[in-house]
């Protein structure tokens, strides 16, 4: 009898082990939360962009690359210019730079303001088409590993561009007249494989118009 008991106990243990390893119980909402497209907490792109703008991007404008110097380096040593000064969250030929400069307004158009730099080069500050990832990526202060969802990244770009459309562009358009001097910090997008320096457009981040 004790031998049978031992045998049945062993069988019961065996069955218990098999049963324990075969069946899992999880709350349905936990499974949905971990496997769904919106896994985890909902991401608030507007709040993230606002905090990034105030706490990281505006302080980083002090470290922006001088536009004239960058332009000169891009002409003489493209690889060094991209390796030293460009950033991008993604992979590929599209890279972004945080730049600054001072110049005189030579033209005010519907879509941009043209500025003549001390080097004799001209640059356009965009006032109409504020789109893309230049402002999000140029500083290199956002890490791709912070995000599980690329749509969150897209929304950060859209919110940063909205901040510029609402806060930076209106005073720029109101005050920039031909002849005025402007200090600017902004973001630019360049294609590393197909570089065109004659069509650079700066998305303004910080602008000071000196009358």
């Amino acid at each position: 009898m004790p031998k049978n008991t031992l045998k049945y106990t062993m069988l019961l243990v065996l069955l218990a082990v098999v049963a324990y390893n075969s069946v899992y119980f999880k709350r349905l909402d936990e499974v949905k939360a971990s496997a769904g497209p919106n896994a985890g907490q909902p991401f608030d792109a507007a709040s993230y962009a606002s905090a990034f703008w105030t706490n990281k991007l505006l302080p980083a404008t002090a470290k922006a690359t001088e536009f004239d110097a960058l332009l000169s380096l891009l002409k003489t040593d493209k690889e060094k210019a991209f390796n030293t000064h460009s950033h991008a969250l993604g992979i590929g030929n599209i890279r972004y730079f945080l730049v600054k400069g001072t110049g005189n307004v030579t033209a005010v158009g519907d879509n941009d303001i043209t500025i003549l730099l001390p080097s004799g080069e001209s640059v356009k500050l965009a006032t109409e088409y504020i789109f893309g990832n230049a402002v999000r990526d140029a500083s290199g202060l956002i890490q791709i590993t912070e995000f599980d969802n690329t749509m969150d990244l897209n929304n950060v770009s859209a919110e940063l561009n909205t901040i510029i459309r609402n806060k930076v562009v209106p005073p720029l358009k109101a005050n920039a007249k031909p002849g005025a001097t402007i200090n600017f910090v902004g973001a630019i997008e360049l294609n590393k494989a197909h570089l065109h320096l004659e069509t650079i457009e700066v998305i303004p981040i910080s602008v000071e118009v000196i009358r």
Binding site: A88, L89, G90, I91, G92, N93, I94, I144, T145, F147, D148, N149, T150, L153, N191, H194, H196
Partner: peptide
């Protein structure tokens, strides 16, 4: 081991102005 969950690969705009580059 510290891979980003999703990495975007840039898509380049090809238009009437830059098609000659390709």
């Amino acid at each position: 081991r510290d891979f980003a969950k999703k990495i975007p690969v840039a898509v380049e705009l090809i238009d009437q102005g830059n098609i000659k580059d390709y």
